[in-house]
C-alpha cells in the first residue's frame, strides 16, 4: 500500500471524507452511550439541547468557547509554522496571573486605561513564557514539545505556590484563591443582563487579526514558508529562527489573552481550577479548524458545545461526562485521517 498525491481534488473528495469522519464520531459516541445503558438518540439530543437549546445554554456555550478561541488561535499560529506549542495552558495562566497582580488594587485607574494596560502586559508575559522554549529550540535544538509540556507542570506549581503564599486572599476562608479584581479591572458585559462579557468580542477580534496577519502580511507568509519547508525557507533568505521566535511570541501572547479574558471577564479572581485544560483542548480546536484562524471560532463553538451539552446530558441521562472528551479525541483522529484522504489516494501495490 502506498499514497499518491492528488493534484486537483474534486469537490466531493474535499467534502466526503470530513463528513464521514463526523458521522463516524457520532456513531462511536452512540455506541458508547449504549454501553452506558442509555438511549443513544436521547443522549445526542440532550447534548445538543444542553449546548444550544436555550438562551442560558447558548450563553454558557459562548462563554466556554471564549478561552478556547484564544488557545485555539495560539495553537493554530504555532502549528502553522510547525512550532509545536503544547504549553498554551501555562501561557493562559501567565495572563491570568498578570491580571490579578495588577487588577486587585495595584493600579487604581479608570476602566478605559487599566484594562488595555493589563491586557498588554498579560500578552507580554505569555509571550515571554514561550520565549524560553523557543530559544531553547533555536539555540540548542531542544524539542519544544517536551519543554512546553513540562513548563505547564512547573508553571501550575508556581501558581499554586503563589495562591497559597503571597497572593492568597485573606478573606478567602483558607482556600488557595486570589483576592477579587477591583470593579474597574472587570471586563463589562456586552449586553447588560446577559451573562456574556467583552472577552468573547476580544476573541473574535483576535481571530480576525490573526487571519489578517496570516494571509496579508510578510510575517504570515514567512510563517507558512517555515512550516512547509524549513530548509527551502532558509535558502529563500527567510530568517527561520527569527520567524520561529516571532511565532512563539504571537502564540504565547494569544493564550495569555485568554487567561486575561477568563479572569477579568468571567471569574474575577484566580484559582487553580481556572482552566480545565483549555490549553490542551485548544490543540483539538486548532486541528478541527485546519489551523485556519476563522475556522478556530467555529471549531471552538463546536467543542464548547459538546462540553457544555455533555455536562447537562450527564446530569439527565447518567452517562459520564468523559463521553465529551472521547468524542473530541475520536473527531480529532478521524479528521486528520479525512484530511489526508482529500490530498492522497491510497493505492494497493
Amino acid at each position: 500500500m502506498r499514497l499518491e498525491p492528488i493534484n486537483n481534488p474534486s469537490f466531493g473528495r474535499k467534502l466526503v471524507p470530513s463528513a464521514l469522519a463526523l458521522s463516524a464520531t457520532i456513531v462511536i459516541a452512540s455506541l458508547l452511550a449504549m454501553i452506558a445503558g442509555a438511549n443513544p438518540f436521547s443522549v445526542l439530543g440532550l447534548i445538543i439541547k444542553g449546548a444550544f437549546g436555550s438562551k442560558f445554554a447558548l450563553l454558557e456555550t459562548l462563554n466556554r468557547a471564549t478561552p478556547l478561541i484564544f488557545t485555539g488561535l495560539a495553537v493554530a499560529v504555532a502549528f502553522r509554522a510547525k512550532f509545536w506549542n503544547i504549553g498554551a495552558e501555562a501561557q493562559l495562566y501567565a495572563g491570568a496571573l498578570i491580571t490579578v497582580l495588577l487588577g486587585t488594587g495595584a493600579l487604581a485607574w479608570p476602566s478605559g486605561l487599566i484594562l488595555p494596560v493589563i491586557a498588554l502586559i498579560a500578552v507580554f508575559a505569555g509571550a515571554n513564557l514561550l520565549l524560553v522554549p523557543a530559544l531553547l529550540k533555536t539555540r540548542f535544538g531542544v524539542d519544544e514539545v517536551v519543554t512546553t509540556l513540562l513548563f505547564n507542570f512547573i508553571f501550575l506549581l508556581f501558581i499554586s505556590m503563589l495562591l497559597e503564599g503571597p497572593l492568597k486572599d485573606p478573606m478567602g476562608m483558607g482556600w488557595p484563591k486570589s483576592a477579587r479584581l477591583i470593579p474597574e479591572a472587570r471586563l463589562p458585559r456586552i449586553v447588560e443582563g446577559l451573562r456574556l462579557h467583552w472577552g468573547f468580542a476580544l476573541a473574535i477580534i483576535s481571530a480576525l487579526c490573526v487571519w489578517v496577519i496570516q494571509t496579508r502580511s510578510t510575517l504570515g507568509y514567512e510563517m507558512r514558508a517555515v512550516g512547509l519547508n524549513k530548509q527551502a525557507a532558509g535558502f529563500a533568505g527567510i530568517p527561520v529562527n527569527l520567524v520561529l521566535v516571532k511565532t512563539a511570541l504571537l502564540s504565547g501572547g494569544l493564550a495569555a489573552l485568554g487567561g486575561f479574558s477568563e479572569v477579568a471577564g468571567l471569574k474575577g479572581s484566580l484559582t487553580l481550577d481556572l482552566s480545565p485544560g483549555f490549553g490542551y483542548t485548544g490543540i483539538i480546536v486548532a486541528m478541527l479548524a485546519l489551523l485556519n484562524p476563522l475556522g478556530v471560532v467555529i471549531a471552538a463553538l463546536f467543542v464548547a458545545g459538546i462540553f457544555v451539552g455533555a455536562d447537562s446530558m450527564s446530569r439527565a441521562a447518567g452517562v459520564p461526562t468523559y463521553l465529551a472528551d472521547i468524542m473530541l479525541a475520536v473527531a480529532l483522529l478521524l479528521m486528520v485521517f479525512a484530511i489526508m484522504l482529500t490530498r492522497f489516494r491510497v493505492v494497493r501495490d
Binding site: Y280, I284, Y322, I326, L328, A329, L332, L333
Partner: peptide
C-alpha cells in the same frame, strides 16, 4: 489524540 482518547 491517542493520549486524549486513551485517558478519556
Amino acid at each position: 489524540g491517542v493520549t486524549l482518547l486513551a485517558t478519556s
